[in-house]
Simulated scan of single mutants.
Amino acid sequence: MSLPQEDVAFVDEYAAETGAGSRSAALHAAIELLRASRHLALRPRRTTSSDTRRHPAGPRGTVDA
């Protein structure tokens, strides 16, 4: 894998700031965050009563009965 120098510098800074210990550890942490965000994005969103009060219209402007 190749990365632009500015990305490598960012990974090095992140590793130093967070105590990750190495570029590899910082990249492993980033991959875990990407996996977690993908799972969150794919998970169905639960609607709460406060969501309904703020956004009463359903899909395409219809009102849910």
Rank of each mutant, 00 (worst) to 15 (best):
H39Y: 05
T52K: 11
S37F: 11
V8I: 14
G58L: 06
P4I: 01
I31Y: 03
D7L: 15
M1Y: 01
D12E: 14
L40K: 11
H55C: 02
A16K: 15
R43E: 06
D12M: 12
V63A: 10
H39I: 09
H28A: 15
M1N: 00
V63P: 03
G19L: 11
F10R: 14
E17F: 09
A57W: 04
S2N: 04
T62K: 13
P44N: 07
R35K: 14
H55T: 10
R46G: 03
V8T: 05
R53W: 03
E17G: 13
A65R: 10
L3A: 09
H28S: 12
A15P: 09
R53T: 01
V8L: 07
I31F: 02
R35V: 12
D7F: 11
A57L: 13
A29L: 08
R46E: 06
S22L: 11
R53L: 07
A36N: 08
L33G: 11
L42A: 14
A20T: 03
E6M: 05
P56H: 10
L3P: 00
D51H: 14
V11Y: 06
A25D: 13
G58N: 12
A26K: 07
V8A: 06
F10W: 07
R45L: 02
L40C: 03
Y14D: 12
G19T: 07
T62M: 12
D12W: 00
A20I: 04
S49D: 07
H39C: 02
A29S: 13
A29G: 04
D7T: 13
P56W: 06
E17V: 10
M1C: 02
V11L: 08
R43F: 01
E32A: 15
S50P: 03
G61I: 10
A30Y: 06
H55A: 06
Y14N: 12
A41Q: 12
G21M: 12
P56K: 07
D64H: 07
A25N: 13
L40T: 06
A36L: 11
A20C: 06
G58T: 04
E6G: 05
R60M: 06
L3D: 00
Y14F: 15
R46C: 02
A16Y: 00
G21F: 08
H28E: 13
R53D: 01
M1S: 03
A9S: 07
M1Q: 00
S49E: 04
V63Y: 13
I31M: 08
I31A: 10
S24Q: 15
Q5I: 05
P56R: 08
S50I: 03
S2R: 11
L34P: 02
R23H: 09
V8E: 04
P4N: 03
Y14V: 15
G58K: 04
A15F: 05
D64F: 02
R23D: 00
H28K: 15
A9I: 07
A9H: 04
R38F: 02
H28N: 14
L27C: 10
R38C: 00
S22W: 12
A20M: 05
D7N: 09
R38V: 01
S49A: 10
S37E: 15
T18R: 15
A16F: 04
F10V: 07
R54W: 00
S50E: 08
G61S: 10
A9G: 02
P4M: 00
R23K: 10
L27P: 01
L40M: 06
L42V: 01
P56I: 05
R54H: 00
S2F: 00
A30L: 15
Q5W: 03
